[in-house]
């Protein structure tokens, strides 16, 4: 399995054993979210609230089938809106 670094906002640390950078083995966004849900159940309301991802700098809507290159930098953010 490949490892990717997942960056979470600091206010979520209380659900992730005080860590805001997680190293997770996943090859797709779907796998990544499953691992987060399994290992950090406290994140459920956040993950359910509508999120978007930045994979190596590119912002996008969540797509569970999207593959993640090895050693990617992934930021999870609130779902983007616009005016």
């Amino acid at each position: 399995m490949m490892a990717v670094n997942v960056y979470l906002w600091a206010s979520l640390k209380k659900f992730t054993n005080d860590k805001d950078i997680l190293t997770i083995e996943a090859t797709t966004i779907g796998e990544l979210v499953s691992v987060l849900r399994r290992d950090f159940p406290g994140l459920k309301p956040f993950l359910d609230s509508g999120i978007s991802f930045a994979i190596n700098g590119e912002l996008s809507n969540p797509n569970s089938n999207e593959s993640i290159p090895d050693e990617s930098e992934i930021y999870i953010m609130q779902k983007l809106k616009g005016g």
Partner: peptide, 20 residues
């Protein structure tokens, strides 16, 4: 208030975000 709101916040705080 949702899951993100720290304890002791005003009841009118609906959500809280912190990053840096």
């Amino acid at each position: 208030g949702d899951f993100s709101v720290p304890e002791g916040s005003s009841p009118n705080v609906a959500s809280y975000i912190e990053f840096g």
